[in-house]
Computed example of a mutant assay.
Amino acid sequence: MKLLSFISIAVFLTGCSNYGQLTFVTKLPKAVKENSGIAYYGNEKAWFVEDHGNDDVLYQIGFNGKILKELRVKNAKNHDWEDLTQDKKGNLYIGDIGNNANERKNLVVYKVPNPEIEPGNKIDAQQIEFYYPEQKEFPPKKDNLIYDAEALFHFNNALYIITKNRSEPFTGKTFIYKIPDTPGKYAAELVGEFTPCETARVCQVTSATISPDGKKLVILGYGFLWIYSDFKGDDFINGRLKTIDLGATTQIESVCFKDDNTLLVSDEERAKTGQNLYSYTLK
């Protein structure tokens, strides 16, 4: 047992390829080696974005790893795009919510129409600006670095943002905020908080998604899934929680539902590992 534990830790620290329980689907193209968000509309293809400093572009990629379409997003700037989500009408939301240093005052979610039916190579974005009313310092002290975020999902005509804890010392505490899904500028509403676990990095939230039937909220960390079900309204954290250790050691960054019981998961390229698309079936 001790030997197995040592090997697991060594694999994690060295960054060796280990997909754990994830099923490999395809190698992603270099254009999205820093992919940070994924959305699925059907037909064995998905949309991706990259994070900080990359192009203001949506990429449609088939499950064979080929780029099928690129859409430049107008009226938008990729400060730090960190997640994608969609609503029942087909609108797509791009979360420009990355805030590593906790000092941004220009947080925004971009709303674009259904990219699947966009005929050209550009798409218009509307802006949903927001701020955290609890944040008083930019940046706050190290023990209060709790205003970064990489997770965004849509539920019942609203957008939900789950923060990524960067506090020192690390506490693991994560907050769920709510904003309208219509253009404007809003104070984000704090609707819940929870602590996935207390081990730095592996317990940081990197993406989130809700099932098409609205019954399961999946929150992704570096190798973990936290699944909430049996919740009422948006009181997610008082639902039933199941934690899954995926056993994966790559830099997992994004998750979305393919159907009510199947997840699509992707990771960034790091140290010659990752940059892949995977699937995972919920038991």
Rank of each mutant, 00 (worst) to 15 (best):
A76L: 08
N35C: 03
G120M: 12
N276P: 11
T209E: 11
Y278N: 07
F153V: 09
E44C: 13
S17C: 15
I227S: 09
A149T: 00
A151Q: 10
L220R: 12
D96K: 03
T199K: 11
K77C: 09
P139F: 00
I9R: 15
Q126S: 11
N43I: 12
K216A: 14
L246K: 00
A46K: 01
K185Q: 09
L71P: 03
T281W: 15
L159G: 02
Y41R: 10
D56P: 12
A248V: 02
T281V: 10
E129L: 05
I146Y: 12
K2G: 13
F48M: 04
A248S: 03
D230M: 09
H154I: 10
K27L: 15
K232P: 14
I7R: 12
K136V: 14
L159I: 10
P139G: 03
K164N: 00
E116N: 04
K142S: 07
W226Y: 02
K272P: 06
R166H: 15
I67A: 14
Y19C: 12
T163N: 12
I176M: 09
T14L: 10
V73W: 08
Y131I: 03
E129W: 05
G247V: 05
L190S: 05
A248Q: 01
A158D: 11
F153D: 09
I179C: 04
S211Q: 02
P196D: 04
K69I: 09
K178Q: 07
Y41K: 08
N75I: 09
V25D: 14
V109S: 00
E253R: 10
L4E: 05
S279A: 05
D87W: 03
Y132M: 10
K141A: 09
E129K: 09
D83M: 00
T281R: 06
I161F: 02
Y40S: 01
T199M: 08
F48I: 01
L225T: 05
Y280N: 07
N238A: 14
I244A: 02
I161D: 01
K122R: 11
I117K: 04
K2W: 14
E103C: 11
G37L: 00
V255A: 07
G15M: 06
A76D: 04
A271T: 04
I38N: 13
N156W: 13
L190I: 10
R201W: 08
L68A: 09
F257K: 10
Y41Q: 00
D87E: 03
F12P: 01
D235E: 15
S279Q: 06
F236T: 08
Q251L: 07
Q204A: 01
Y19S: 15
V32K: 06
K283Q: 13
I9S: 15
G247M: 02
Y19Q: 11
T209Y: 12
P115S: 13
